[in-house]
Design a protein around this nucleic acid. Sequence first.
DNA 1: GCAATTTGACCCCT
DNA 2: AGGGGTCAAATTGC
Length: 306
Amino acid sequence: MDETSTTNMRKTMIGELIRGRDCTSKLLNQLNRRIVDGGPESTEDLVMKVIRSFSNSLSTFSSPATTAYVGSACIDDRTRKSDQGEKKPALTTVKDRRGCYKRKTEDSRVEIAKTYEDGYVWRKYGQKEILHAKFPRCYYRCTHKDEGCKALRQVQQLEEYGSEKYRITYIGSHTCQNMNKNTQMFLAPEDHSFFLINFEDSGIKHTPSSFSNITNGHTMPSNKQQDDSKAQSSYYLASSSQGTSSNFGSEDMITDLELSYDDIFKDDDLCAERGNYLASSSQGASSNYMWEDMITDLELSYDDIF
DNA sequence: GCAATTTGACCCCT
DNA sequence: AGGGGTCAAATTGC
C-alpha cells in the first residue's frame, strides 16, 4: 500500500470518528434537555449519524487493502525474530495461531463492562490462567442448564482492582426463564441508578431497579461484596442479544471492530485500552471520552504500525 | 446434606 | 505442540 492511500484512509477514519464524537456530544445535550423530537436534528438523526460513522470507519478499517497491510504489521514481530536468526514457526496467516480459537458452532458476542453482573444467574464451572493475561478467565454456564438452557459466559478481568473492567463473552442464548431475555440494564446518567429497558415493547420502559436484588452466581471476596454500591454506580454496557433494537446496532459494530482489533493487536497492554472504548460507550458523557480515546489511540496505533 | 466453587486433568482446535 | 475450553472429583460454605 502506498503512503498516500494510507494517509487518506487514516484521514477518513479519523474524520468519521470525529463526526461520531460530535454527534454523540449533541445527542448527550439533547438527552440532558429531554428533547426527543425537537431541535434542528432529531435524536434519531444523530443516532443514525453515529451508526453511519461506525460503519464508515469499520468498512475503511476492514477493507482488503487495510487488512492486508495491518495483517503484515501484525506478523511483524515474528518476522523480525526470523530476521535476527531466531527459529521461525511456519506462518501462513494471522489466524494460524495455536490455541487461539473460538468455538465455531456457537453464536457468541462480546461485551466490555465495568461489572460482570447482567441479571442472569450463572454457575461457575471453570477458571483458567490465560497466557499473557493478568487475571484468570472464569467460565460460567446458566444455572438452569438442567432445564436445557445452553447459555455460557466467559469473564475475563482486564484491569487492576479498583478500576475493574471485564470482557464478557456470551456463547449461546438463554432458553430458560432465568430472566426476561429482552430486558437489559442501563445506567441512568442523572442519578447513577440502574434501570431496565424492555426491548419487547416499541416504547422504552425504564423501571428503577435495586441492583443488589438481582442475584448472580459470581463469588466475590467479602470486601468486594461490601463494594456493591460502587458496582451500582459503575456504568454498564448492555446490548440487545436478539438485535431487537436497531438503535443499538452501533454497539454490535463496536464489538465487531473490537474483535477485528483483537485479531490485529495481540499485545496484552493494548487489551485493557481496547476495553476502555467499549466500557465507556453506554452513556453519552463517557461516550465522548471513548471517541477522544479512540481517535488519539488510533493515531498512536497507526503511527506505530505504519 | 446439598449446592456451589475450585482446580488438576483431559480434550479439542489451530 | 501447545493454548484454550470443559469435565469432574475434591473442597468449601451454608
